[in-house]
Amino acid sequence: MLLELAIADAYGAGFEYADEMIVNNDLSRYVEHPRFRLIPGSYTDDTQMSIAIAEVIVAQAPWTPQVLADSFVRAFKRDEREGYSRNFYHFLLEIQNGEEFLTKINPDSDKSGGAMRAAPIGIYPTPEKVIEAATIQAAITHNTPDGINAAVAAALMSHYFIYRLGEKRKLGEFLQSYVSGEWAKPWEGKVKSKGWMSVRAAITAVMRNDSMSELLQDCIAFTGDVDTVAAIALAAGSCSEEITQDIPDHLVTGLENGTYGRDYLINLDKQLMSLANKNIS
């Protein structure tokens, strides 16, 4: 899950709000963004914050805003990187711990930050537990109805496939039975910054593609905030028996592999997925 999320994030980062780059959407390589200072093959905030969430789950630490905020800050401080929004990046630079994070953050966003990091939460054993956990983590930064609903839907996407709750084509209907939103309605056109937009586009792409390579290209083809769309979609798609796992090898080997890169993600994935059939509290 995390490896595929990171590959999608890193690949999509070259196309984010850069419609002119769409001619390069052939999966042949990680492309350099025309404006952002990102080394091709490097992941962004979507992956780093998903790592922070996954580490709390694997540690089976208390699921509290304080613990989660500490994890967000720790993940950033040990591996500072571009890719966050400018304001949030500078916010993370200035604070030192989770307590300061919670004291100083403006939690009223309805953008995609709560959803982009929610996929690992799908590992919890019931939809109700997933909803509770996704809501708590989203409210730290995105305590709005749209921000929370987007995060809950993104978490339930991976849960649906991990626990084999139904056919891929029924994903949207499943989500609508648990969280408010038009999740079964196909998304069309450019994806802007609102969280529900990224999640709806990701759902649409997952439902209509049968391989990970097609899924990744389809996510990028929407244009707009495509790294987030791709990260959400491929995290879920990696857990589906109906989707062929055919991400090109050169995108796997081309993903960054520093201390918290490819090998770290593979190992964290193993720990995360080992919890799938356990009753974690």
Rank of each mutant, 00 (worst) to 15 (best):
L2S: 00
L3H: 02
E4R: 13
A6W: 11
A8Y: 02
D9Q: 12
A13N: 14
A13P: 07
G14C: 09
G14R: 04
Y17T: 10
Y17W: 13
M21K: 11
I22G: 04
D26A: 01
L27P: 03
V31N: 09
E32W: 07
F36H: 11
F36L: 14
R37S: 12
G41S: 08
G41N: 09
T44S: 14
D45I: 04
D45V: 05
A54R: 00
A54V: 03
E55H: 01
I57T: 02
I57R: 00
V58H: 00
V58R: 00
V58S: 00
P65Y: 11
V73G: 04
V73D: 04
V73A: 05
F76Q: 03
F76R: 03
R78M: 12
D79Y: 13
G83Q: 08
G83N: 08
R86S: 11
N87A: 14
F88L: 13
F88W: 06
L92T: 02
L93R: 14
I95R: 04
Q96T: 13
E100Y: 03
F101D: 05
K104S: 07
K104C: 05
D108I: 10
K111P: 06
A115K: 01
P120F: 02
G122I: 02
P125S: 11
T126A: 06
K129L: 15
I136P: 09
Q137H: 02
I140N: 02
T141C: 05
N143R: 14
P145Q: 07
D146L: 15
D146M: 15
N149A: 15
A154R: 01
L156R: 04
L156Y: 09
H159N: 13
K168L: 15
K168F: 06
F174G: 08
L175R: 05
Q176G: 15
V179G: 00
G181H: 10
W183E: 11
A184Q: 08
K185Y: 10
E188Q: 14
G189I: 11
V191S: 10
S193E: 12
G195C: 12
G195N: 10
V199D: 13
A202K: 03
I203C: 13
A205P: 00
N209Y: 05
M212Y: 08
E214Y: 10
D218Y: 06
C219W: 05
C219Q: 08
T223I: 00
V229T: 09
I232W: 04
S240I: 08
S240A: 15
E242W: 05
T244D: 15
D246P: 01
D246V: 03
H250A: 09
L251H: 08
L255M: 12
N257T: 12
Y260N: 09
R262Q: 10
Y264V: 07
Y264M: 08
I266N: 09
L268V: 07
L268A: 05
K270M: 11
K278S: 13
I280W: 01
S281D: 12
S281R: 13
